[in-house]
C-alpha cells in the first residue's frame, strides 16, 4: 500500500503536532510538519499533499478566541488551496485547536463565505479541563472516509477550555443532525469501566463542555472535512490508555483518514 503524504500545518502556539505525526505514521501515512510561514512562502505547497491534519494546541495563544487568528490566515492566505484540496476530495481533519480553526474559518460545517451558524466557545464549566471521554463515531455521518469506522467508539482525552459546540438556532441543530454530526460524547464517558455506553444526554462530565446534543465533532457537507475536540492521537498505543477495559484505540480513525488519502 502507498504511504500518502499528510501535511500537518504548525502555527505559533501549535502543539500535539508531533503526536499527530506519530498517529499518521502508525496509520501508514507520511507526515510532514510545516510552519505556516513555510506554506506562505511557497517552500511547502498544500497541493503536494494527499491529506491535511490541523493539530491541537493554542495557535497564537488563542487570543481573541480559540483558533481565531489561524482561521483568519486560512481564509486570507490559503482559501484557494484549501478549496482545491476539498474539490479533489482530499481528507482534512482538525483536532481540538485544529477543529476550532476549521469552524472559525467557516470550513466546518461550511461552506466558507456564508455567515457562520456553528461555533466553539467557552466550556459550560467556564474552565479548561483535561479528562478521558468516550466517543462514538456516528454511523449516520455522511463523511465517506469515516464510513469504515462508523458506529465504533474511541476512548481518548480532552484538553480544552473552548470546546462547547454551540449553534445559532434550532434549524442549525437540525441541519447538523442530517448527517453532519461525526462524533458524539457517550454517557459514562469519563468512567473507563462503562459497559453500556449511551449518549451523554448533556450531562457533565460525560459531555465535558456542554456541547449541544453531545456533539464532539462534525463534518462538512461533502464529508471530506472532519473536526473534533477530543484527542484520538493520544490513544494510538495500548499503553497510553488508563487502567480499564481494552479497546477504544484512536488508531482506526487515523487509518481511515490515511486510507481516504490513498
Amino acid at each position: 500500500m502507498s504511504t500518502p503524504p499528510v501535511l500537518i500545518p504548525h502555527a505559533s502556539g501549535t502543539n500535539r503536532d508531533e503526536e499527530a505525526a506519530q498517529a499518521i505514521r502508525l496509520a501508514g501515512g507520511m507526515p510532514t510538519i510545516a510552519h505556516v510561514n513555510e506554506l506562505r512562502s511557497g517552500e511547502v505547497r498544500i497541493a503536494d499533499y494527499a491529506a491535511i491534519l490541523l493539530p491541537g494546541g493554542f495557535s497564537y495563544g488563542d487570543a481573541l478566541g480559540a483558533g481565531g487568528r489561524f482561521a483568519l490566515e486560512l481564509r486570507t492566505w490559503f482559501a484557494d488551496e484549501l478549496a482545491a484540496a476539498a474539490a479533489a476530495g482530499k481528507p482534512m481533519l482538525g483536532i481540538c485547536n485544529g477543529f476550532q480553526v476549521l469552524v472559525k474559518a467557516g470550513l466546518l460545517p461550511g461552506p466558507m463565505g456564508k455567515p457562520r451558524s456553528v461555533t466553539l466557545t467557552e466550556n459550560a464549566e467556564g474552565r479548561f479541563e483535561c479528562r478521558w471521554v468516550t466517543l462514538r463515531i456516528e454511523a449516520s455521518c455522511r463523511s465517506g472516509w469515516l464510513g469504515s469506522v462508523g458506529g465504533t467508539t474511541i476512548r481518548c482525552p480532552i484538553a480544552h477550555g473552548e470546546g462547547r459546540v454551540a449553534v445559532a438556532d434550532a434549524a442549525t441543530a437540525d441541519r447538523l443532525e442530517d448527517g453532519l454530526v461525526a462524533f458524539r460524547y457517550l454517557a459514562d464517558g469519563t468512567r473507563p469501566t462503562s459497559s453500556h455506553p449511551n449518549a451523554a444526554s448533556g450531562a457533565y462530565p460525560a459531555n465535558p463542555n456542554g456541547s449541544v446534543n453531545d456533539i464532539a465533532g462534525i463534518c462538512d457537507e461533502q464529508g471530506t472535512i472532519v473536526g473534533l475536540m477530543p484527542h484520538p492521537e493520544d490513544h494510538v498505543l495500548a499503553w497510553q490508555r488508563p487502567s480499564g477495559p481494552e479497546g477504544g484505540s484512536g488508531l482506526p480513525l487515523f487509518e481511515a483518514f490515511v486510507a481516504g488519502a490513498r
Binding site: R16, E19, G56, A159, Q240
Partner: peptide
C-alpha cells in the same frame, strides 16, 4: 483537571 496531563501522548 485544569492541567493538561496528556499532551505529548507519553503519560503512562
Amino acid at each position: 483537571r485544569r492541567y493538561d496531563h496528556e499532551v505529548r501522548g507519553g503519560t503512562v
